[in-house]
């Protein structure tokens, strides 16, 4: 019957609307459901695999493991890494290629992890930093090997 159908429609309409309101009402009154993290006050703990930026590991003697082989430079899809090498005089009188500057362009990096996978000596790794904003873009071009650092003994 028309009237019965009409009333049924009105009833089911009201029911569906009220059940939605009950849900939002529940969230309004139950503040324990709030998921906001107040960022500068609550610092995030990043996962250990999180890829923030490329860094070069140095030990306490200020030695790194980079031989300047440019495997990472070749692996990088965006020309993020530029390796400048120099000829170093070995104690036995031979000249050997060694790392001079490891230039890293953070502004070009997509954190794809391919350089880290390509590195044969585990010289570079991903750091878990995430606050990268600076006022001047030049600051994003970084020199990864520490000043005065040299190649670790025994790394070929």
């Amino acid at each position: 019957m028309f009237i019965v159908d009409y009333i049924k429609t009105v009833y089911s309409t009201c029911k569906s609307l009220l059940s939605g309101m009950r849900l939002t009402g529940y969230y309004f009154f139950h503040h324990k459901e709030i998921i906001t993290q107040q960022y500068p006050d609550v610092r995030l703990v990043m996962a250990e695999r999180f890829r923030g930026e490329v860094v070069m590991t140095h030990d306490e003697k200020n030695e790194h493991r980079c031989t300047g082989c440019t495997a990472c430079e070749l692996a990088c899809p965006n020309a993020t890494i530029k390796i400048v090498t120099k000829q170093e005089l070995q104690p036995d009188g031979k000249k050997k290629k060694a790392l001079d500057t490891f230039v890293y362009h953070l502004e070009l990096c997509t954190m794809c992890n391919l350089c880290i996978m390509a590195c044969p000596t585990d010289a570079i790794k991903m750091a878990q930093t995430y606050e990268h904003s600076v006022f001047d873009r030049n600051q994003l071009t970084k020199k990864l090997n520490a000043p005065g650092s040299k190649l670790m003994e025994g790394v070929e």
Partner: peptide
């Protein structure tokens, strides 16, 4: 993020 190292563009 825990497994792949990134949240959106995991690669």
């Amino acid at each position: 993020e825990e497994t792949c190292g990134a949240r959106l563009t995991m690669n």
